[in-house]
Design a protein around this nucleic acid. Structure first.
Lengths: 225, 225
DNA sequence: GACTCGTTAGGTGTATACAGCTATCCGTAT
DNA sequence: ATACGGATAGCTGTATACACCTAACGAGTC
């Protein structure tokens, strides 16, 4: 009975980890913008579980610094301060170069194909821009690049900083869409070249380069306010 | 009544964060060696709380990779594989150099005094070695160095890798005590020089150097088995 | 004697009830 | 009109009961 109730809910099977990933993705994708209040009871109803697993998931997320929970008030998605954004980006600039130097994985044909697909979609984005598509293409690119990192510790750090930077970064796609689509096409072109040559080190440096560009855009258009 | 019960327990006030830090420290200090089973009910009784906050704390720790929980079996402290140790150490070698280059804090007289105290204790350790003292001095040194890191993201990463490396590292202090005491005195001498000169960048490079030495010891005496 | 299967003890995973905290609203006194 | 204070609604934090899963033990059988 309770099982039937679960299957009729939106998700087929929801462990704590699944819930955590889903909520983190919603934060990254700006479905939950900074300032949004997360209510445990609401999420519990949506996922078809009790508050307990939801609390567990939120607790872990708060430890990553993406949300903040205060007793009696609620859980809100945090807006990173200018200084925090600076720290995250400076860190990403440093570790990007390590992607290719520390235990890189070998690039497969599947990876190349994914790169080509993403490039095509990005090109289509130039003429018909949508913030949501921009975010999703970037996200899949990040999944791809992360999968090429052989060092588990670095992979974890890379992903953490991505999640922390994502919401700030993607916020710009509402305003400066075409500019960012152009940049994404350029980035993916470079990435594809490196993929074809099987050069993971190059991918790391390309990332470093474009993180620098993105950081510059953020400093100019967001932090200047 | 329940409040009196709490105060009579070992801790005065136990929030989830306190419990988490305490358990992590016990893992780092080898009070819970790899393979040790953590029982939620036991810990709940010890800390004078219910299983709920204990579960919360353990859940976060498992997300850091220090323990592993399996349904119906229990929670055990994980022994990092040789590859994982390699990954953690390679990462520490890379980020150590960043300590002084990314938003370093200014060194205070209090910091210098702590450095002198630690050096004295380390010197005493050479003639009368105790694994526990060795671990505690190192731990306090790490707290000191971490406090000099201005970039919050780097500070977090530095602390994470420390916790992951600690149990493997400290395991050697049971066998190769005097050698490690000598190395600790040498490290603290270098650190003190840098502290007096207010040179945080130097501290980063000193760390890098001695992490390399420690990694070498681990590769020779632990991973060779 | 060895193997199989049912039983059981002991752990984690989840649901739920309740306690505690906080911000807000409203009535009252100044 | 305004400022203060208490009631209240709604949230998180905690305790507890129960469901479920797993491994180990022992009786029964070949």
């Amino acid at each position: 009975m309770s099982l039937a109730q679960k299957t009729t809910a939106t998700e087929l099977k929801s462990t704590v980890e699944d819930i955590q990933l889903e909520i983190v993705q919603r934060i990254c994708f700006l479905d939950y913008p900074p300032g949004e209040q997360l209510k445990e009871a609401e999420l519990a109803a949506e996922f078809g579980v009790s508050r307990t697993p939801i609390r567990d998931a939120i607790s872990r997320i708060s430890h990553l610094g993406l949300v903040e929970t205060r007793n009696g008030v609620g859980t809100v998605v945090v807006a990173l301060s200018a200084e925090q954004i600076r720290h995250v980006y400076e860190m990403r600039l440093e570790i990007a170069a390590l992607i290719g130097t520390m235990s890189p994985c070998t690039i497969t044909e599947t990876d190349c194909e994914m790169g080509r697909t993403l490039l095509q979609e990005a090109k289509a984005l130039r003429t018909d821009f949508g913030p949501r598509q921009y975010i999703e293409i970037n996200h899949r690119l990040h999944v791809l690049i992360t999968s090429l990192i052989g060092n588990g510790t670095l992979r974890s750090f890379w992903w953490q900083t991505y999640c922390q930077a994502a919401s700030t970064w993607y916020r710009q796609s509402n305003q400066r869409g075409s500019e960012m689509a152009q940049a994404l096409v350029a980035e993916l072109s470079d990435i594809n070249t490196a993929l074809e040559l099987g050069d993971v080190a190059a991918i790391g440096y390309i990332q470093r380069t474009h993180i620098g560009y993105g950081y510059q855009r953020i400093k100019t258009h967001l932090l200047a306010n």
